[in-house]
Computed example of a mutant assay.
Amino acid sequence: MTTTRCPAAHIDDPTPCDGPPAVTVLDRQNAGLDGCEHHGARLLASLEGGRVYALPDAPAGAAIRVFKAAADLPPFMWVES
């Protein structure tokens, strides 16, 4: 059995998704990935000048939760763990 993770989950990050993709995280060049809130926050914390937007079917407040969580994480959290 294989477990599919969201596109925002870094290949070296062993943590599971916390739900379906809920946000899009964009870098300075507007390249983006959809992700669950957990991996969206980890990705956002690892970018300079990144932005987060809720997907149309995301739970209310998803983008702000990701933004706030990213503020408390070091970049490349999976390297620290």
Rank of each mutant, 00 (worst) to 15 (best):
F67C: 01
G49Q: 04
L26S: 13
P14M: 09
G19K: 03
P59D: 11
E37P: 01
G32R: 14
W78G: 01
G32P: 01
I11T: 11
P16L: 10
V66N: 09
P21N: 12
T24K: 14
T3H: 09
Q29I: 02
V79Y: 07
A69F: 01
G61D: 05
D13Q: 06
A31M: 12
D13N: 10
A22R: 11
A31D: 12
P75T: 10
M1S: 14
V66L: 04
V66W: 06
Q29G: 01
Y53I: 13
G49R: 08
A45Y: 08
L33A: 04
G61S: 04
R28F: 02
A31F: 15
I11H: 12
A60K: 12
D18I: 00
R51F: 06
W78L: 07
V25Y: 00
D72L: 14
A62E: 08
W78P: 01
W78M: 02
D57L: 11
E37R: 09
D72A: 13
S81L: 11
D27M: 00
L55Q: 06
E48D: 13
R51W: 06
F76A: 09
K68A: 12
T4S: 05
V52I: 11
A8D: 02
H39Q: 10
G32S: 15
G40N: 06
R51N: 09
P14N: 08
P74Q: 15
H39N: 03
C36D: 13
D18W: 02
D72W: 10
R65S: 10
T15K: 08
A58N: 09
D57V: 04
T15Y: 11
H10F: 12
G40T: 00
T4F: 12
G35R: 02
V23M: 02
A8V: 08
K68N: 14
T15C: 08
E37N: 05
G35C: 04
A69I: 03
A60F: 04
E48F: 15
V79T: 07
H38R: 15
H38P: 00
P20S: 15
L44G: 01
A71K: 12
Q29R: 15
G61F: 08
A63I: 09
P21R: 06
V52M: 09
M77Q: 11
G50N: 11
A71L: 14
D12W: 03
R5Q: 08
G49W: 08
V66R: 04
A70D: 09
Y53F: 04
W78R: 04
D13L: 01
W78I: 04
E80L: 05
V23L: 11
A8L: 04
L73M: 13
L43T: 02
R28L: 12
E80W: 13
H39T: 07
D13M: 03
V25P: 03
W78S: 01
Y53R: 13
A9C: 13
T15L: 15
P7V: 03
G50T: 13
R5F: 14
H38L: 13
G19T: 01
L44E: 01
A58D: 02
A62M: 06
A58P: 10
C17Q: 08
A22F: 00
T24E: 14
P59E: 11
K68I: 06
K68F: 03
L55A: 06
R65V: 12
A22V: 03
H10R: 12
P75F: 09
T3P: 00
P74Y: 13
A60S: 14
L43P: 04
A9N: 07
